[in-house]
């Protein structure tokens, strides 16, 4: 169970962009969060993934309340989430090759010995070939880079996925392919999903249920 409870969050003092929002995702469930751009839904997604400290409210992950945010969150709690962002260019360290990019979470957790096998497995899941894995972000297209970012998000086998406008920059075919990847992963592992976006047609097709931002704000 992922519970986001009465969250108020923002980037400047006394100017919250999210006010008292609550949302619950059950294990294995996929929830689409719809809203216009700039409404604060991305901020909520970052709070839910323990990447942004809210001004008020709490996040409960599988029964345990989040003890902190960003580096202050216990590693086990942080890595329970796989996150994918809107812009693959900004989500990839420009100096790492795609295979290093995908392997990064394993290395950060001291599991470097599993790298070759897991990277191969994860890259195959998103359809990236060996030749592409040796390249750096500026040598591949947005779609290919976003595939690598999805592979990175899945490599630690998180119980929760947070996809923030994952496909906004992508064409229809790559969108369908990446949604397929996420859904296959969820079918295998029973992971829950919070997908944030503005494309109603996409989210209704993708998710078990969708909620509109306006319904959430107190």
């Amino acid at each position: 169970m992922l519970e986001v409870d009465a969250i108020t969050a923002g980037y400047e003092r006394h100017k919250p962009v999210v006010r008292g929002v609550s949302l619950t995702v059950r294990p294995g469930e996929s929830v689409g969060l719809l809203g216009p751009s700039g409404c604060g839904k991305s901020t909520l997604a970052r709070v839910a993934a323990l990447l942004h400290r809210p001004d008020a409210g709490r996040v409960v992950v599988d029964g345990t309340a989040a003890a902190g945010w960003r580096h202050r969150a216990p590693r086990a709690q942080r890595t329970a989430f796989g996150v994918v962002f809107q812009q693959p260019r900004l989500s990839a360290d420009p100096r790492l090759t795609l295979s290093a990019l995908i392997a990064e979470p394993l290395r950060a957790n001291g599991r470097a010995d599993e790298v070759p096998e897991k990277v191969r497995e994860s890259a195959a899941r998103v359809g990236l070939g060996d030749e592409l894995l040796g390249r750096r972000p500026h040598e591949v297209s947005d779609g290919q880079l976003q595939r690598a970012c999805v592979a990175r998000a899945l490599i630690l086998e998180p119980r929760w996925l947070v996809c923030d406008e994952m496909t906004a920059m992508l064409d229809a075919s790559t969108t369908a392919a990446l949604v397929r990847v996420v859904e296959d992963y969820r079918a295998d592992t029973g992971a829950g999903l919070l997908a944030v976006g503005h494309d109603k047609a996409l989210l209704t097709r993708w998710c078990d249920r969708t909620v509109h931002w306006s319904e959430l704000e107190a």
Partner: peptide
């Protein structure tokens, strides 16, 4: 975001 992704990956 890539720093966010690294933190989320447990770095």
């Amino acid at each position: 975001p890539y720093v966010d992704a690294a933190i989320s990956g447990g770095a």
